[in-house]
Amino acid sequence: MDLKLDHHSEDSLTIVEVEGEIDVYTAPRLRELLIDLVNKGNFHLLVNMEKVDFLDSTGLGVLVGGLKRVRAHDGSLELVCTQERILKIFRITGLTKVFGIYASVDEAKEAHGRDK
C-alpha cells in the first residue's frame, strides 16, 4: 500500500494523518510534509499512525528529524499508535523514551492541553 498523508490544525496542534507504508521509498514524502509544516510555523505536531501498515528505520529517522526541528522552536512532535508491530520498533530502538506515544488523538490532545 502506498503512503497517504493529510493534516489539519486544532487550536495550536497540527494533526498529521498517515496511512499506508513508511519505508525508504515513501519516507521522503513524510519528511517533506514535516519540514513544510515547521517552515510554516507549525511547531506542535501530532502524528497519527493508527493506519500505518509498515514502518522501518527510514521512517523512524524522519520522525526523529521532525522532532529535532520542532524542538529547535520549543515545539513538540508526539505520536498516536496502539499497533504492537509498530510499537515494537520504537521499543527496540529506545525511541519510546524520546517520543510521547498516546493511545488516541483525544488522549494526546488532552495531554497537549495540560502542557500548554
Binding site: 528505520s57 527510514t58 520498533i89
Partner: peptide, 18 residues
Amino acid sequence: DPLGQLPGTLMSGFGIAV
C-alpha cells in the same frame, strides 16, 4: 541519545539495531 546522533549514523545504526 538518538537526537544527538548524526542522521547517517542514526539511519544505519537504527536499521541494524532493528
